[in-house]
Nucleic acid binder design. Structure first.
Lengths: 131, 131
DNA sequence: GTTTGCTTCTGTAGTCGCTACAGGATCTAT
DNA sequence: ATAGATCCTGTAGCGACTACAGAAGCAAAC
């Protein structure tokens, strides 16, 4: 049993974000103490961790909700979960390859600029005369 | 000399985005025809291309504004431009390494889920019992 | 017992980079 | 003259937070 502040410190998730997650429906409506304050148990900490981890993996909140819905019906096939993960995987792979191209271009840009004048600057030049 | 619609088609940038860029100060206030409509020349198309390319490289609009300000003072050293590009480069590199970790984890998750039941599903499990 | 200061509450507004209208004006083509 | 395309401004919406304002409660020092 802990307050929202404790959960926040423990998880590293801002208080406002925890409340936002409740509003957004990825955390259940929190139990309240008689004074109206939210109280959380271990289960809540686990669910918050689940949400955070999914977010870090790039899942959007709609996908997180979908995964949570699956979790609550353990008799179903996990095809849907695996489909979500596959979709996520190809999104990540395409971001990776795009980012690799960008990194190479930025490296070239930085290397080409050895503190000359802006008029000779390859950084700006690279952005201006592209393709 | 062209209309905003033509510039939009030519550049592949939405009309609304072009107007937004003007509002955001990364495109100059457009020249207007007597009827009040925006008209653009080659120079504007070039600047729009600059902005788009910088955005695709992950520069935020504030950085784009900074790069444009540099561009207008060609007598300065290009250290500032190169600093911006270096910052951008390390941001991209850290995103890359994070994404690589995520990709591996997602691959493991997908491989581990061979359409069993949710109760055995490694996708959800991987998100729940992490670290 | 009161004052200080911390935590929490709700509700609303701001962020970034667009995107999508609504409602009106104006252009072009038939 | 009329239809449909294009343009204008202004405002609101998106996602995933983040940041406040103003009120209430709580714990501890004085």
């Amino acid at each position: 049993m802990m307050s929202i502040g404790t959960l926040s410190k423990q998880s590293g998730v801002h208080i406002e974000t925890i409340r936002y997650y409740e509003r957004a429906g990825v955390l259940p409506k929190a139990r309240r103490a008689p004074n109206g304050r939210r109280i959380y148990g271990k289960e809540d900490a686990g669910r918050l961790a689940f949400v955070r981890h999914a977010r870090e993996l790039g899942f959007e909140l709609v996908s997180v909700r979908a995964l949570l819905a699956l979790q609550e019906k353990p008799e179903l096939s996990c095809k849907a979960a695996s489909d979500l993960a596959s979709a996520q995987l190809s999104a990540v792979e395409s971001r990776l390859s795009r980012l690799t191209v960008l990194r190479d271009e930025l490296r070239r840009m930085v290397r080409a600029c050895k503190n000359g004048r802006v008029v000779d600057c390859r950084v700006i030049d690279a952005l201006t005369n592209m393709r």
